[in-house]
Design a protein around this nucleic acid. Structure first.
Lengths: 217, 217
DNA sequence: TGACCGGTTGACTGACCAGTCAATCTGTCC
DNA sequence: GGACAGATTGACTGGTCAGTCAACCGGTCA
């Protein structure tokens, strides 16, 4: 039963990363010990250092893996030929679904990196900024097309938009907001409604249209 | 030169708190040592423990002092007889001015408490939640009065609003957004414009009115 | 004068934990 | 078989730092 070259039965590296997500989510990065991660993974202490240089590197890896996916999603959305409101909806949807799919990982990324700008956020500021830029680019294009009002800078709008999304996730993480399938879907619409209603050039007075309905250009 | 009863020339306790703000802002709570605070305050190590039980308690004190002021400001604003948009403007203004007045303290509160929900945020969740509730109450009343659309829950709106404000402050803290008198004033208007435009029942198409001008009821 | 007391000092301790390393195990190839 | 390599183990070390404590200082009051 020769296995494919050098591929172990269980990828211990992955096992450690997944265990780290659970431990970080439960105890927080600063308050957990490396031995907690090893225990959670059912692996010897030393093995963690066989696969990673440091405790920090484990968190870095988790963050970068996921953030790159987000950045690519933003770029992909921006390339599509759909109205800006739908673009923002797609991004919101992606982030909300990421939370739905793996709440612990999203909790770690938000609490320990994105919102911990003094420690890990500092290290990854450039990556985080890239996401803002991607969103700002969408807003800017929409402004040039006349779909969004132009008196609010794209960078500012991007920050407000992302801030609202992240705050809602934080609300779920810390049980300030009810969770559930219905809530997730509603949140997507509500976030885009709240923010775009403000960014949109005032034209219609029809009640909240379905996010995939409206056509602008 | 008898001084007022038991009032030392310099309030060492205050000296330590102020030094802690600077050290926490510069190095972060987790990465600084208590000796750093003592050095910054120009005071012996042990004196810190004369006035405070633990390193944690210093941060707790800083947070609670400031947060109570915010909570009272929110309550006070809500009690005034002004349209909801102006109430939100007043709250935004208060927070932005807090940052203008003492950016280091606001950095510490946001980075180390409000956005560190896993460590200190957890401890103070009830206090933080109180601010959301205060904002939600404003939104709810505005919805009942027909000034705000009713299809977005007040709690949700409060989170989105506060999230946008905090994200903008974070933008200033980490130099993602330009700072300055003009920017601070503009930010106040833009935040309220962005959020209320979305919350407001669509009626006018007049360009952004001065925040202290419009009257609703 | 001298007793008292709160404020102040900084050396010290005890615990904790990230990271090291030598030994052991497991599988592969000749 | 046996030699080699990478995976795996966990006891140990070295450094760090929060919190303690005994001593000291300076003002007050009887």
């Amino acid at each position: 039963m020769a296995r494919a070259n050098a591929e172990p039965a269980v990828d211990k590296r992955r096992l450690i990363l997944d265990a780290a997500v659970r431990v970080f989510a439960r105890q927080g990065f600063h308050t957990c010990r490396v031995s907690d991660i090893a225990d959670e993974a059912g692996v010897a202490y030393g093995l963690v250092y066989h696969y990673f240089d440091s405790k920090d590197q484990i968190l870095d890896t988790l963050f970068l893996e996921r953030w790159d996916i987000l950045l690519r999603a933003i770029q992909q959305v921006d390339a599509e030929e759909i109205p800006p409101r739908e673009k923002l909806y797609a991004i919101t949807s992606f982030i909300v679904d990421s939370y739905r799919h793996d709440p612990e990982l999203m909790k770690v990324i938000i609490v320990e990196v994105t919102r911990a700008a003094n420690t890990f956020g500092r290290t990854h500021l450039a990556h985080i900024r890239e996401a803002y830029h991607g969103i700002a680019a969408i807003v800017e294009r929409a402004q040039r097309a006349g779909t969004f009002r132009a008196d609010i800078t794209p960078e500012f709008a991007a920050l407000a938009f992302y801030g609202a999304v992240e705050q809602v996730l934080t609300g779920w993480i810390f049980a300030l907001l009810p969770t559930g399938e219905r809530e997730y879907e509603q949140a997507k619409t509500h976030i885009v409604e709240t923010i775009c209603g403000g960014l949109d050039r005032v034209v219609s007075d029809a009640p909240a249209p379905s996010p995939t309905a409206g056509r602008a250009d």
